[in-house]
Amino acid sequence: MDPRFHPGDSVRVLERNQPGHVRTPLYVRGKVGVIERIVGSFPNPETLAYGQTGLPYKMLYRVNFEQKLLWHDYDGKPEDSLEIEIYEHWLEPA
């Protein structure tokens, strides 16, 4: 499986409402970040959690967000950041 994104790429997390076992927290949906690293392909937790195989595997990335972009009233340094794992099907180029 070839990764669609690479370290340094700007990405936006999809603002999608999806019920069930979703590992993309609300606070990053719709936000723009930068790919920190490609983690690799993993079973899809959205089906694995319901006793299925998790196939096809999904590419997983670590995405870095500036805290100031996540929270409009963030109290800290402009360089403060947050890193989180996001599966490829939750990302689009930004």
Binding site: P25, L60, G76, D80, L82, E85
Partner: peptide, 29 residues
Amino acid sequence: VREPRAILAEFGTTIPERKQVRVHDSNAD
């Protein structure tokens, strides 16, 4: 994730202004 510097201070850990705070949300694999 929302106010890491305030939480750290409550743990007795004051991060100097010159340092960047990086939070890791361990949400997946």
